[in-house]
C-alpha cells in the first residue's frame, strides 16, 4: 500500500483544526509513515498541486476567491474531508450571516469599501464533501482515525448519536436535570463528553446529532429560564446554518 498523498487547506477559519492535527505531537513521525504531505502551507514549503488522495479542508467559504479555490481543490482530490465546524456547517463565522453585511463591516472597519466577503457557507454549499469531521476543533485521534480509514479504504466510524451517551458512560450527573442549559442531548458525540466531565455544559461544538429533538430541549431551556435571545445565540453558534438547527437559529 502506497502512502496517502494529502493536502491540508485553510479557508475562513482559525487554524485550530490544523493545530488539533498537529496535537499528535510525537506520533507525527509515525503518521508520516502513512502520508506524504503534498500541500500543507502551515507546515511545509512544498506546494504540490496534487492530485490528492485526501484533502483535509478547514474553514468556511466566505470570499469569491474561496469559491473558486474550493472547486479547484475538489477537482484535484479523491476524498475531500470537511475538517471542523466551519467547513461542515459554516461554524462560528456564520453568526454574521444573521446580520446585514454592511452593518458587520462597519462594526469592524472604518472604511469597508475594499472588503470582499460574501455570505458564509459550509463547503458542501459549493462542492461534494465525502467525509464530515465536525468539532471545534475535531478531536485529534478522530482525525487520525479518518486518515487511517481512508488509507484502508473503509468508511470512517463517526458517531451520530448525542453527547449524552459519552456523558452517561462517564457517570456524570446530568447538568440539564440540575437546571443548566446543556446542549448535550442534541449535539453529536465524539468529544468524550469533554465539557460535562469538567462540569461545564455542552456548548454544541460538535454540531447537531442525528435527528435532534431541539424542540423538546428548547422547552427545557425555557423552563430553566433562558431568554429567547439566549436560546437563539446558543443555536446560532457553531452550527446555526445546519438543517437541524436552522429552524430555530433565527432565519
Amino acid at each position: 500500500m502506497g502512502k496517502l498523498r494529502i493536502g491540508v487547506f485553510k479557508f475562513t477559519s482559525c487554524s485550530g483544526c490544523q493545530l488539533s492535527m498537529l496535537r499528535v505531537n510525537e506520533q507525527l513521525l509515525n503518521l508520516l509513515n502513512l502520508i506524504d504531505i503534498d500541500y500543507w502551507v502551515m507546515v511545509s514549503d512544498v506546494k504540490g498541486k496534487g492530485p490528492y488522495d485526501l484533502a483535509l479542508v478547514e474553514g468556511s467559504v466566505s470570499t469569491p476567491e474561496e469559491i473558486g479555490e474550493i472547486k479547484e481543490i475538489r477537482s484535484r482530490s479523491r476524498i475531500l474531508v470537511a475538517l471542523g465546524d466551519c467547513a461542515t456547517y459554516g461554524g462560528l463565522n456564520s453568526i454574521r450571516n444573521y446580520m446585514s453585511q454592511r452593518e458587520v463591516e462597519k462594526l469592524v472597519y472604518e472604511n469597508p469599501t475594499s472588503i470582499r466577503s460574501t455570505t458564509v457557507r459550509p463547503l458542501d454549499y459549493y462542492v461534494d464533501v465525502d467525509i464530515y469531521l465536525s468539532g471545534c476543533p475535531p478531536d485529534t485521534s478522530t482525525i487520525v482515525e479518518v486518515i487511517k480509514d481512508v488509507a484502508l479504504g473503509v468508511p470512517p466510524r463517526l458517531p451520530k448519536y448525542p453527547v449524552c451517551v459519552e456523558c452517561k458512560l462517564s457517570e456524570n450527573e446530568c447538568l440539564l436535570i440540575k437546571g443548566e442549559p446543556c446542549m448535550g442531548p442534541v449535539i453529536k458525540a465524539g468529544c468524550g463528553a469533554l465539557c460535562p466531565n469538567l462540569g461545564r455544559i455542552c456548548e454544541g461544538c460538535y454540531g447537531p446529532a442525528v435527528d435532534p429533538n431541539a424542540e423538546s430541549l428548547l422547552d427545557k431551556w425555557r423552563e430553566i429560564g433562558l431568554s429567547e435571545r439566549e436560546i437563539v445565540c446558543k443555536l446560532r453558534k457553531y452550527a446555526g446554518l445546519s438543517k437541524e438547527f436552522k429552524r430555530w437559529s433565527g432565519l
Binding site: L152, P162, N213, L217
Partner: peptide, 27 residues
C-alpha cells in the same frame, strides 16, 4: 424524548452491544 440513550445505558439489564475494529497507525 431526545433519543439520547440514557435509559438503556443506565438500565441494569440492557445488554445490546456493538463490535468493531480499531486499526493501528501501521495499518
Amino acid at each position: 424524548c431526545f433519543s439520547c440513550g440514557t435509559c438503556s445505558l443506565v438500565c441494569p439489564t440492557c445488554y445490546c452491544y456493538d463490535i468493531y475494529d480499531e486499526v493501528g497507525l501501521s495499518l
